[in-house]
Design a protein around this nucleic acid. Structure first.
Lengths: 232, 232
DNA sequence: CTGGTTTTCTGACTTAAGTCAAAGTAATTT
DNA sequence: AAATTACTTTGACTTAAGTCAGAAAACCAG
């Protein structure tokens, strides 16, 4: 078996959508999915491309974004293993991708075509419920983010972002939580709905208040309590 | 049959979730749902209340909102017939309502308990797919709104809101589209992620540019092309 | 290592939108 | 209809965050 195959099975087990499947089912999913490699900065699809199916991130980091009429980039999601993206259009009328997707680093994706997925869900209708749970969770996250963008200012949103990240990497439990950005600060800015200059000043502000220490791409949390307070 | 019963059946036929059900199924849904009346300003549920089930709007207007730590109201959704609300928590772990819901006018709702719904979906698994389609549509709307809030300014968001409303009431096809607000401008402001003063100025701006004419709660669209352009 | 590119930061300035206070208008009650 | 209340608009002011331009730092390829 190719080394990729092991990674594929390993990750599939962690995809919430497939988490309760037994081995034979996982093998089946593994069969219908096609592994695709993308170099850093390479696009996976563009807005308005014909919708072929969705992706599961096996390795790397993907940004899904749109460009506004005025040319401003707006980042809809950042996706790491074992997350899905472009799964929403599976259940929509229109036949095109509604946004752009680009690899932020060399990435490995599992592509599942809409036709294959239709077959899979026909055989395992319980996947529909998994999907509903996944959608529900994301809607919750989205409403939270929407609320944040319209009621909080940038430094508060940054505080929230840092907390999310140290929760994900588990270091929130340590005495000094930390995080190492795998994406550029310009990307973080667009994700928080702002621009690099403003983000830079927000980082400075948090540093001046002795809440964090920034060293290039590394961020050390000095005062988690205050950080949480800011994030609200 | 009570007059409410007719309204109930009539509306249920229009709920996308139930749209393709045959009469016997609709009757069944009608059976399990309980009609509830709410006076203007009355609350349907509050944040952190125990989650009992979801609602279908038969008549009236409902706002689902949250209050931020600083006391700012943020409106998540405005719901009219035949829309659903509080359906997302059906598929989530936590057992509480994640927001507040309040009637903006005297309203009639159909309440469906989570237990009854679980039974319904067991008998008609196809409802899960309807639900997925509904969630997908809403996620699309939410991403659109999020993008708008973080990239456009208030007058553009207002333009978008007016277009949505005249699309919904059908008057967009007329020579002079119009809309009659059923909610206060303070509510519109909170829905657009801003405050009354700023909204008032945005209305003024659109009027000064001869795009709309505002007369109390009535808004007449004079220049749909420009309005669409602003909305982007 | 070095020259060049990209990314990030800083400062000066502008602007959209928030705050506060007050006046004006509309709606409701008695 | 008068009075009370709620909603909306206006004006003066403040502020968060965007723009533009340039400096500094980090990253990479030859």
């Amino acid at each position: 078996m190719k080394p990729e195959e092991n990674l594929k099975k390993e990750i599939l087990r962690n995809v919430p959508l497939f988490s309760e499947m037994d081995v034979s089912h996982l093998n089946e999913i593994s069969e219908i999915g096609r592994i695709e490699q993308f170099k850093k900065n390479q696009h996976i699809f563009l807005e308005n491309d014909y919708y072929r199916g969705f992706y599961i991130v096996l390795k790397g980091n993907i940004k899904v974004y749109r460009i506004s009429a005025e040319g401003k980039e707006y980042i809809l999601h950042l996706r790491k293993p074992p997350q899905l993206f472009a799964d929403v259009p599976l259940f929509e009328e229109g036949g095109n991708y509604p946004a752009n997707a680009q690899a932020l680093e060399d990435s490995l994706l599992l592509f599942i075509s809409k036709e294959e997925f239709a077959g899979l869900i026909r055989k395992n209708p319980s996947i529909a419920f998994k999907m509903l749970a996944g959608f529900a969770k994301r809607m919750r996250q989205m409403t939270k983010k929407m609320e944040e963008i319209s009621t909080k200012e940038v430094s508060n949103r940054l505080a929230g972002f840092i907390i999310e990240e140290i929760e994900k990497n588990g270091s929130i439990k340590l005495k000094e939580p930390f995080l190492c950005l795998t994406i550029s600060k310009a990307t973080v800015a667009a994700y928080l709905g702002t621009i690099t200059e403003t983000l830079s000043r927000a980082f400075k502000k948090l540093q001046e208040e002795n809440i964090i220490v920034v060293n290039g791409k590394k961020i050390f949390v000095k005062d988690l309590k205050k950080l949480k307070q800011l994030a609200g």
